[in-house]
Write a protein that binds this DNA or RNA. Structure first.
Lengths: 127, 127
DNA sequence: TTAGGTGCAAACAATTTGCCGTGTT
DNA sequence: AACACGGCAAATTGTTTGCACCTAA
């Protein structure tokens, strides 16, 4: 009664995402697929990306809304998945990670950002 | 001729951001300041946050647009600040970081995300 | 047949911009 | 006096939703 069916559009979107390593936006996926699938609509792309993300088949990569921080020194953050709050974390910045990333990728690393997810002190008590 | 002047609004926004540790959105800052500053407009908040971020006085905390990734296993990312491209990074997931974060914060950590910034192999050559 | 899926357009939400009067220097 | 700044509202951009039709099971 609450099943999910096969859908050509979903498969298309998922396969395209899986083959691209560009971490595309919904808009990008749409523009790639549209030429071959003229009836495809952007709404469907968003709908299926959300479906896939909710069931854990793919990953969303961003905060939905921009946040700002007056602390400009590199430091890490914690994001509570229950209340949505964002906290600073007092962890020393680890330069070794940048070295390791350079070694693994060859890209020019200038810094990194570390974001933890979980439930915060307040929320974890409320079961 | 191209200088920046003192502005009460900018100072207000910056001070409020500095005192809050909530990593607020523009909307949140606006709602905090509006009661005491009835003429303040949301556009001004955005304008000044962008100004401050561009000059490095504050930090933006998100991708402006949602991106998706078909790889669901925890792994890290690299974001090129020149071309905006996003790449996967083959770094082993380090559980110790989660332990350290728990120890430092007391929050319930379920995982972390590591995002490197810099210029990618392609872009760094073009000077 | 029946619930889920899709296209399309309208609605919504987040952010930017143009215009024009105000404030800083 | 010049020109940056801020208020306001309109414009843009990113994302979601309602509705009527279509399709997999």
């Amino acid at each position: 009664m609450n099943g999910k069916r096969y859908s050509r559009q979903r498969e298309l979107i998922y396969e395209t995402l899986k083959c691209s390593h560009q971490h595309p936006t919904a808009e990008m996926l749409y523009s790639w697929l549209k030429p071959e699938n003229p009836t495809l609509s952007l709404g469907t792309v968003y709908r299926n990306l959300n479906l896939l993300a909710d069931e854990g088949a793919i990953t969303r990569m961003a905060f939905p809304v921009e946040r700002y921080d007056a602390k400009v020194e590199p430091h890490s953050h914690f994001r509570c998945m229950v209340c949505g709050g964002v906290y600073d974390l007092e962890l020393p910045y680890d330069r070794h990670l940048d070295d390791a990333a350079l070694l693994a990728s060859g890209h020019d690393i200038s810094r990194h950002e570390l974001i933890f997810h979980g439930s915060c002190c307040n929320c974890k008590q409320k079961h």
